[in-house]
Design a protein around this nucleic acid. Structure first.
Lengths: 173, 173
DNA sequence: CGTACATGCTTTGAATTCGAAGTTCACTGC
DNA sequence: GCAGTGAACTTCGAATTCAAAGCATGTACG
């Protein structure tokens, strides 16, 4: 992309690194976009909403505290409140204060929520398969996943400059 | 992440693929977030604004049509119009109709824009270096970049279901 | 107890984003 | 010339997002 601007030898990124960096950003964005599009068309869900539902579906008893949800989903706290509100309105989840700690809110998937995830899942997976893994061999996937995993661990370990590590990610954004 | 929900054997994603998929989304997001944060702190620029400026800085004569900019940057048309407006207000770029085609708008970086990119660049590169490449060997980078490049080409080739390929093709470069 | 601080979540206001509709200009074919 | 089609942007309204401020509850410590 803007190679000359960024690939200043003094600055410390080789052409190879630069290419990997740009490709990573672009692939990540395109993938999220494609997946988001499918989820909206097939289940009227945003990617974030799907993540929330899927994580709840995966949790014991289908329940999680808001905070635990926020840690797993790439998202800001207030954004999660907003999206959770939308999901409650659609009857896909319920919210209730925790008995243990009145400050906490426990979110639970409803049957409708589980059904919607189940409905949307095949197409979701199919998209990922076609977009991301179609051009990769088994060895490619192994190597690719290993490197990504290493990077992720590194990123999680590095202290983010400002308070919020936009989660296990985020931002996205 | 939501492994049980997504890693249905019938659905077609192995555990290994699943891990790579999640790691990719997370790493891409965290990276963008970290870089965005730095750019705002150091130059009051969003990632998108930086991409616009950097691409212009890299272009011959520092000029590009809006459409060509949009193709290189992961962005919607209207979003680009908005961000370009902000950059014009700050005197970092100028906009003028193309002499060749009155429909087109030619965007040009100003000296102030170039200066800002130069100011921000070292820190930007440093962040990428520390976050993304620090835990990788030279061979890792090579392999990683090769796989990503392959995926990118594949994604660009696959017809997006709806009209907008959120950043798809651009000319060789 | 009582003050101080910490935690968990929501509300708020501003900024950003997108898609759809609208506008203007260019390029056919007739 | 003069429709009809398409391209390049912009404007518009609605949805989403964030950070900061607000509230309520929990915990530490004198």
């Amino acid at each position: 992309m803007y190679d000359r601007a960024v690939s200043d030898p003094e600055a410390g990124l080789s052409a190879e690194q630069l290419g990997a960096y740009f490709a990573l950003v672009e692939v990540g964005s395109l993938l999220q976009y494609a997946v988001d599009e499918h989820l909206r068309a097939d289940g009227d869900l945003s990617y974030v909403q799907f993540q929330i539902l899927a994580r709840l579906t995966d949790a014991p008893d289908g329940r999680l505290r808001m905070t635990d949800l926020a840690d797993g989903v790439v998202y800001s706290r207030s954004g999660l409140t907003y999206q959770a509100g939308l999901l409650v309105n659609r009857g896909l989840i319920t919210r209730a204060p925790s008995p243990d700690d009145e400050r906490s809110v426990i979110v639970t998937v409803t049957d409708a929520g589980r059904a919607l995830v189940a409905h949307v899942l095949p197409g979701h997976v199919e998209r990922v398969q076609q977009l991301l893994f179609a051009p990769l061999s088994g060895d490619d996937v192994t190597a690719f996943g290993a490197v990504l995993g290493r990077i992720r661990e590194h990123m999680r370990a590095v202290p983010p400059r400002s308070a919020k590590p936009r989660a296990a990610r985020r931002k996205a954004g």
